[in-house]
Design a protein around this nucleic acid. Structure first.
Lengths: 191, 191
DNA sequence: CCATTTTATTATCTTTTGTTAAGCATCATT
DNA sequence: AATGATGCTTAACAAAAGATAATAAAATGG
């Protein structure tokens, strides 16, 4: 149950078997069905998730429309991290796109963990740094690339998601409408 | 020289006088003129900066054109953080827009600091978290808002920068051309 | 297996932005 | 005061994206 988790964590930081136990005990295992909301817009996110299996989508709601901010897949820490860190109501919703198996840690449990195992500060620092780097990469693609180029990059970086995620979700993630993405795909085919 | 620095740091974490001394000794003071490059595209960023005075701009270069990624002002940690963290050549350039007074810490000095004062992990964690939150906010404005709305938000959030920064720099930061920003401003005036 | 819903494509029209180029205004420097 | 550099605005045109709607295709749930 924790195999993937330890593998990912060890890329950031080494833990002794005893420390791993402590770490494990702070998490709970949870199975959730498709279309299950883990964080609702307007509520404070109190949990962090590690995905063993499944897909989780983070989206904004604007005028009845869902605009995807990120798609988390296996071996990633998913969260409405912004809300979790600031302890402010989330402007995002976090929702499963497939049946998922996840590891869950609450804000309180994490605080306790900091006390018992100060080393965790290093881990969460590196996770935060990772999230920052990732966020920067997406941001730079908005500044430097056209929608078509962003889609090409998405195709390369997330080939697997093309099969698992509806096109309109990808479109909103790329900052365009589904109609526009459909046109881009057509243009690309023709040439 | 360290007054502003301590004030900002104390928002994240408390330090004893002794700890503050250690912290200070890891930094050096530096004065740089306008248009001075702190990090060049293609080089690994080995320093972090705290701005006492002045403006520092982070930009990408694409086809002879400079596209602004961020503008750092007083009391902020400026850096090509991505490159600094990954120790990979930067795809960004970090350059002063005004004469600046900055505090500088090198990668090595920071590593030493982690050993002497493990608490620093908490500080850098919170700085990384802050950078992530900030990055997320900008990213969401690209997903949710039109260029005009982004400019309105910029006007409100960074009134001071409107006076200090040329409009074409702001335009590229908003992901549009200077011509387009000029049109947007005209539209806004008319209504 | 059918009925319903969701998703994707296509067409039309409008709006916006990009591109290029020209004309001014401003500012710093000599 | 003249010079050049830089930045802002405007215009004209091309290209792309948004909005809306109709249709087709695919997935979902009973």
């Amino acid at each position: 149950m924790f195999t993937a988790f330890h593998k990912v964590v060890s890329q950031f930081l080494e833990f002794t078997p005893r420390e791993k136990e402590i770490l494990e005990s702070a998490f709970t295992f949870r199975q959730i069905p498709k279309k299950c909301k883990l964080v609702c817009k307007g509520e404070v996110a109190t949990e962090l998730y590690f995905i063993n299996k499944g897909l989780i989508r983070l989206y904004y709601t604007k005028a009845e429309e869902e605009i995807t901010g990120f798609i988390f897949k296996e071996n990633l820490f998913a969260s409405s991290y912004d809300s979790f860190l600031r302890k402010e109501p989330s402007i995002q919703t976090l929702e499963s796109m497939e049946d998922c198996e996840i590891l869950v840690i609450t804000h309180d449990n994490l605080e306790d963990l900091y006390k018992v195992l100060p080393k965790i500060n290093i881990l969460t620092r590196k996770v935060a740094e990772q999230r920052f780097i990732n966020s920067q990469q997406i941001l730079s693609s908005f500044l430097l690339e056209s929608p078509e180029e962003r889609y090409r990059r998405f195709e390369i970086q997330h080939k697997d998601l093309l099969q698992r995620v509806p096109q309109n979700v990808i479109a909103s993630f790329l900052g365009i409408t589904p109609v526009s993405l459909s046109r881009i795909r057509k243009r690309m085919q023709e040439s």
